[in-house]
Design a protein around this nucleic acid. Sequence first.
DNA 1: GGTTATACTGGAACCGCTTCCAAACGCAGC
DNA 2: GCTGCGTTTGGAAGCGGTTCCAGTATAACC
Lengths: 336, 336
Amino acid sequence: MAVTIYDVAKQAGVGVGTVSRVLNGNPNVRPETRQRVLAVIEELNYHPSPIARRLSLRKTLTIGVIAPFFTRPSIVERLRGIEALVAESDYDLVVYNVETPERRDACFRSVVAGHRVDGLIVIHLAPTDDDVRRWAQAQTPVILVDTRHPALHRVVIDDVAGGHLATRHLIELGHRRIGYISDWLDEPFHFTSSRDRLLGYQRALAEAGLPFRPEYHRQGDHGREQARQMAHDLLRLAPRPTAIFAHSDTQALGVMQAAADLGLRVPEDLSVVGFDDIEMAEYAGLTTVRQPLAETGRKGIELLLRLMDDPSLPTACVELPIELVVRRTTAPPPNP
Amino acid sequence: MAVTIYDVAKQAGVGVGTVSRVLNGNPNVRPETRQRVLAVIEELNYHPSPIARRLSLRKTLTIGVIAPFFTRPSIVERLRGIEALVAESDYDLVVYNVETPERRDACFRSVVAGHRVDGLIVIHLAPTDDDVRRWAQAQTPVILVDTRHPALHRVVIDDVAGGHLATRHLIELGHRRIGYISDWLDEPFHFTSSRDRLLGYQRALAEAGLPFRPEYHRQGDHGREQARQMAHDLLRLAPRPTAIFAHSDTQALGVMQAAADLGLRVPEDLSVVGFDDIEMAEYAGLTTVRQPLAETGRKGIELLLRLMDDPSLPTACVELPIELVVRRTTAPPPNP
DNA sequence: GGTTATACTGGAACCGCTTCCAAACGCAGC
DNA sequence: GCTGCGTTTGGAAGCGGTTCCAGTATAACC
């Protein structure tokens, strides 16, 4: 059916070895021979079979990405950074979207053990020690992005500092009652950022001599609508918070909806800070903590490619800078 | 290094054929034999090599998706529908993001010709007759999503009807001066939706006896910021449009920013209609034409899987329904 | 001119599966 | 006990590349 390297070899009157050599740019081929082979390749419209190549090379020439909820803007941005670099390489990119813990476990197990990829990027999801052991055993390089494990290479941000940054900004504006809306601290995915940002939030409060009030911290499923609900609860408290720090921009938008629902003006009556700086943050004029999303993806792939080249590289932990972006949703608190 | 089917065969005291048979659920294996083999597989922690399997099967067990700008919410939603179904199948999903015409051409050429996938989904990008011919020749099934070609299976919406729907809604509210903001009608990607929606827009105007004023139609690169600029231009016209229909929700958000920039209230001074119904549309209270984004992806994969089973299927054209979603950005025009 | 190093080249072996064919086996029927 | 048939099995061939090794041709040197 399809034309193979044997067809090319026969047609060009050379051996398959020679064809393979011109295909792979091996310099030990006489120029005339190379020309002849190239001509036949063109003539027969020959395309080497990547599958056969992979079997022979004992490489999948594939990089996998396992990511949760890849419709979330923050994940998409990272994926984009990843795709851009993978496209320039010889590798294919296969994506695994996980929306349930079961699916996560299935991916963590089968993708590496099944030799489906030469390298793996895991976004946001935290692997267990068991997972890590299995990956090491399979000798498959893994890079974590926006999540961590002591034994694995990773590119992260300082979530504690991020929480601190956001909270301190509010404190400096004069706020004393600051709410925090986060994902579940204890959910089946074991995301850690909510917890870390909470830590930064608490630390900033403490530094300012402000008490941490547990009732000002709400947790729930991720999402705008859920955040809106939590914000409702928060804003019905007496005294209500004059500012809310949300774990993500998406959630911050939910907070702003809640404010609108209750007739509160932002920022006059309520200040809101988000996290990530997704595109909509700019639209909404949201003050937020920016993290370089696409850049984390790019750095992750760079690391991965390097690691696939030299698996003995010492465990790297790349920490990317974050930055407070002040827009129009934060202001001094209303007079009491 | 890795354990192969031969290791399993030897250890279990059977032939490789038998191991392969139990692996593939062939019923002609004595239950005791099956048990023994299964036990050895477990014991050796054997995972069959997908690569070898593919070579032998002469299938890549891979489905490709070529999509432009996959950070756009509308594309991401479709991808999500695709991923969900592919994950349930035996196939891997590899994604090709295209952001330039060159990359598109490279993907269109090499992905199929290079035998990298068993089936392909193309989102939004229009293939040329040449592309289609090459794909047919390679016997690779291709499904188009949100784009079309007479010779190819596709899942689409009626963009003309969509443009008509949006425009008629505005007309019924009493608007007489309605702007339309679209992507370039003639851009290197040959997207057709802008043109089709324009057609629907013009048709609705005509039906209402309203003239089509070319100066009320603006085109430019896709994007919120670009749409904002175009809306600025539109709103500085005299007389200015009292309503703007935008080719996408993202662009509609840009229009709303422009309105805010100029101190125009939405919907009192300006009505805005978008297209797609992405998540942000609901947040922004945007009146829009909803299309079932994730559903187009799902339908596409369904079609593709069926087609890979039976390549002789007659060319299918699935048209999914659209629907006007009225929210808070449309109202009767201001009194003159 | 003879030797030797070097540049090319052909082709067998191998990667790890599936599949097909032939052989072995088990059992019913006579 | 033998025949015939369906079930179960082993293993060789094949998928389409890469690579290594041995062999030939060419150039370089004495």
